[in-house]
Design a protein around this nucleic acid. Structure first.
Length: 596
RNA sequence: GGGGCGGUAGCUCAAUUGGUUAGAGUACCGGCCUGUCGAGCCGGUUGUUGCGGGUUCGAGUCCCGUCCGCCUCGCCA
């Protein structure tokens, strides 16, 4: 075997005259006819032009050179020389070429299903890219992503190691717990009828590590949630997970702000600037989202009071049932937004639970369009409240507080896209703080955790935890960058009585609590320090830095929307023997359907 | 579980109101070409139109079912 002496990205003018060996894949070949063939040889590090010239090499090597096709794998020995033709400014090695003297064809490729070509990779169906991931990943762009991801994890490890964090692994096979996402379940062979769950996060383990005196913990770990994926969400994903003892919220926000700022700066070359704090209430009130995109300035205003003065039935019905009316001023919207566009925005509002999106134009001192007559009675007050100017459009979000805010908030985002309000290359981050402890779930008829059941209420809120859970503010915090939640955490409950109270509020009986979370409550009884932590979504960080909204772009071997790995064809059938050992009997498909 | 879009050559796509032999670029194969670099020129091979039914003289096209992929609501403590 010819062993390479350097890579395809490093040879320069200065190396002219040296004998080297390169190994790699044929990126392209250009056969000029009898006696002259060019090859661009590719490896992870770059491209080097190899020339097969009849005047410089043997007929045998020439023949092999002419037979090479895309993605064949070769090793080639030769002499570096300054190019006889023009240099190629597109390549770092563009000044030189390797004159082939000896060649070893390591492997010929079969007929290629896809080409690893950045130039038209976007056109290749993702299904093919995923099935032949090993070819897709050869693309320089994909290699760059893998490298960036590596740099981020490397930076993370170094940063936290420098701050005395210990990297500690937690188990993948854990006990199923109620609350939260749907678990992936794994059968136990030794204890038939018993099941492991794969972790949705190492949450409880990292808290127990604090009880165990580890003080500062870090792990870059896989988390698994058996829920439907989205473009930016995958059932199997990676978190930068950490936890600290004897800290308060400010301590955590401080170190995490430093981490985020330095990470973006040093790895991504991005200046995040200051990371201000905004309360959850302010975020919902003004941006209609708990992860507001503050790169542009449209804001929502509460006009419930004003709206109650009108005879508009849509307003009245919502207000009578305790709802909210929000308004958003779109400067200059009268000209920019056609009926077609406002209709499309109304569809957005409907998707998020609103009945529609009443819209009025403000032109010539009058409200125009269909619902104008209903809001004209409050015209002056509305103009004043929203600071309306001639040519503006006003849109209304109506419904329960969360629906009114969210629906109009989503319209806000759609509008930003449509009117191109987001400056390219802008990065704006902020911490969202003071989340509510709970949200009332109508279907379940009980409180559910806004964050998770281990989140502590703010110290000032402990009094109202039980008397007024709906207004109880938690110690949770999320880091939001460009409208995406990149991480979140909280100060945890370290007092077993308070933890038991929270479980109780979530509708768990004390038996259930003891059965499912007894080990945690126990741990809290045996000397738990105050502690708190954060989990950052690694995939999201990578996505943001390379500017993609597709999470599959940043995962080497991602899954599809139905949880399939198209390359290895997971999930697959298990051997009946395996099932037998586990005491599992498959129900017939028809029976499964009937059971529904 | 709901809604939307898509599936035609290895790949990316085209194919008039249903119309007879399903085309183009690219990859691949062959030929030409000594300075190319997304090489060029000439020629060629490549099809279960996702799958299964149905309507029709005739289906890539229309209908029903189903599978797969993508986007999305619910869901994601």
């Amino acid at each position: 075997m010819l062993k390479r002496t350097c890579t395809c990205g490093e040879t320069r003018k200065e190396n002219a005259g040296e004998e080297i060996v390169l190994s790699g894949w044929i990126n392209t070949y250009r056969d000029q006819g009898k006696g002259l063939v060019f090859i661009d040889l590719r490896d992870r590090y770059g491209l080097t032009q190899v020339v097969f010239d009849a005047e410089d090499t043997t007929p045998e090597v020439m023949e092999i050179g002419a037979s090479l096709r895309r993605e064949d794998v070769i090793s080639v020995k030769g002499i570096v020389r300054i190019r006889e033709g023009k240099p190629n400014a597109k390549l770092t090695t563009g000044d030189i070429e390797l004159v082939a003297k000896e060649i070893e064809v390591v492997n010929r490729t079969a007929k290629l299903p896809i080409l690893p070509d950045d130039h038209d990779a976007d056109k290749i169906g993702e299904e093919h890219r995923l099935k032949y991931r090993y070819i897709d990943l050869r693309r320089p762009k994909m290699q760059e992503i893998l490298k960036l991801r590596h740099k981020i994890t490397q930076f993370t490890r170094n940063f936290f190691a420098d701050n005395d964090f210990l990297e500690i692994e937690t188990p993948l096979l854990i006990t199923p717990t109620p609350e939260g996402a749907r678990d992936f379940i794994v059968p136990s062979r030794h204890q038939s009828g018993q099941w492991y769950a794969l972790p949705q996060s190492p949450q409880i383990f990292k808290q127990i590590l604090m009880v165990a005196g580890c003080d500062k913990y870090l792990q870059i770990c896989k988390c698994l949630r058996d829920e439907d994926p989205r473009a930016d969400r995958q059932a199997e994903f990676t978190q930068i997970d950490l936890e600290m003892s004897f800290v308060d919220q400010d301590d955590i926000l401080e170190i995490m702000s430093e981490f985020a700022s330095r990470l973006y700066k040093e790895v991504g070359g991005i200046d995040l600037g200051e990371l201000p704090q905004m309360s959850w209430k302010d975020a919902m009130d003004n941006y209609g989202s708990d992860r507001p995109d503050i790169r542009f300035d449209l804001q929502l205003r509460d006009v419930t009071e004003l709206a109650s003065k009108t005879e508009f039935k849509v307003f009245k019905d919502a207000i009578d049932s305790g709802g909210t009316v929000k308004a958003m001023r779109v400067p200059g919207g009268a000209d920019k937004l056609s009926r077609k566009k406002t209709d499309a925005l109304a569809e957005v509002a409907k998707t998020y639970g609103a009945g529609g999106l009443p819209t009025v134009k403000y032109q010539g001192g009058e409200f125009l369009t269909g619902v104008a007559k209903f809001v004209t009675p409050i015209k002056d007050e509305l103009v004043e409240a929203l600071g309306l100017e001639d040519g503006d459009i006003v849109m209304f979000g109506i419904g329960s507080y969360r629906v009114a805010c969210t629906a109009l908030g989503e319209v806000r985002l759609a509008l930003a896209k449509d009117l191109e309000l987001i400056p390219t290359g802008a990065f704006r981050g902020l911490w969202i703080v003071d989340f509510p402890m709970f949200d009332w779930n109508e279907d379940a008829g009980r409180w559910v955790s806004e964050h998770h059941p281990f989140t502590a209420p703010l110290e000032s809120q402990i009094d109202i935890l039980e008397s007024d859970p709906g207004n109880c503010v938690s110690s949770g915090y999320d880091l939001v960058i460009n409208g995406a939640e990149v991480g979140g955490g909280s100060i945890r409950i370290h007092n077993p009585e308070i933890q038991a109270k929270v479980f109780g509020l979530l509708g768990l009986s004390s038996e259930e609590t003891e059965e499912k979370f007894g080990f945690l409550l126990n741990a809290l009884r045996f000397g738990a320090p105050p502690h708190g932590g954060v989990a950052f979504g690694l995939d999201r960080l990578v996505m943001m830095m390379i500017g993609t909204d597709n999470i599959r772009d940043v995962i080497a071997f991602p899954k599809t929307q139905t949880g399939a790995d198209l390359m290895c064809e997971a999930p697959g059938e298990a051997d009946p023997k395996q099932l037998d050992e586990l005491g599992i009997i498959m129900r017939e498909p028809e029976a499964a359907t009937e059971a529904k």
